[in-house]
Each structure stands twice: as C-alpha cells, then as structure tokens.
Amino acid sequence: MIIHDMGKSLKIVTLLEQKLKEYCRTDYKIKVYPGQVHGFAQCKPEDMRPKDVPYIEEARMDLLEWLNRTL
C-alpha cells in the first residue's frame, strides 16, 4: 500500500505507520509529499501546477510499481 497524503499531521502519519506494521499483510510504503493534498496525483492535466508535476509523476510511478508487484 502506498499512501500519499499531506493533509495528515506527522502524528497521524506515525500512528498510521504503527497500525500498518501491526495489521497490514502486504508491503507498503508511506510517503509524504510537501504541499500536496489528498488525491493530488489524480489531477487532470489542465489542473496541474507546474511545480507539482514531479510529485505527481513520482506518485503515479509508485502506484504502478506497487500494482505490478502486488497483482
């Protein structure tokens, strides 16, 4: 599972990671993207801010890699 969500505080991200370690039975990776909101990688091209494009591309690649590895 890959989680990209800057809307969560560091405390919540830490709690999430503890719960994943305890209960998750598949591999996962937590990444925090500065200044991004939940679902930022699903933006339509016309809604993308140029400074966010590298984050969007990285998040999409992470998702594809996880799907290929897991499915």
Rank of each mutant, 00 (worst) to 15 (best):
Y55D: 03
L15W: 14
G7T: 08
A41H: 02
L67Q: 12
M6E: 11
D62F: 00
K11M: 07
V32S: 09
K21C: 12
F40Q: 02
V13M: 04
D27P: 14
M6H: 11
V37P: 03
I30A: 10
P34A: 06
H4V: 07
I2T: 06
Y23Q: 13
I30V: 15
H4A: 09
R60C: 02
M48C: 08
E57V: 12
G39F: 01
L15N: 10
K44E: 14
L16K: 08
T70P: 01
I2Y: 05
E57N: 13
R49G: 00
V32T: 13
Y23V: 10
L10Q: 14
P34S: 04
Q36P: 01
D5W: 02
M61Y: 02
Y55R: 05
R69Q: 15
A41L: 05
E22W: 07
Q36F: 06
P45F: 11
L64S: 03
E58K: 03
F40K: 00
K51N: 02
T70C: 12
C24D: 08
K21D: 12
I3N: 09
L20Q: 03
L20A: 02
C24M: 09
Q36I: 09
L10R: 13
C43V: 08
D52G: 07
L16D: 05
V13Q: 07
I56T: 02
T26M: 12
T14E: 11
E17H: 04
Q42C: 10
D62N: 04
P50H: 00
E46R: 12
E22L: 15
E17S: 11
D62V: 00
E65G: 04
R69W: 11
P54I: 03
T26Y: 14
Y28L: 10
R69K: 15
A59S: 14
K8F: 15
V13K: 06
L16N: 05
Y28T: 08
P50V: 00
N68P: 07
K21H: 14
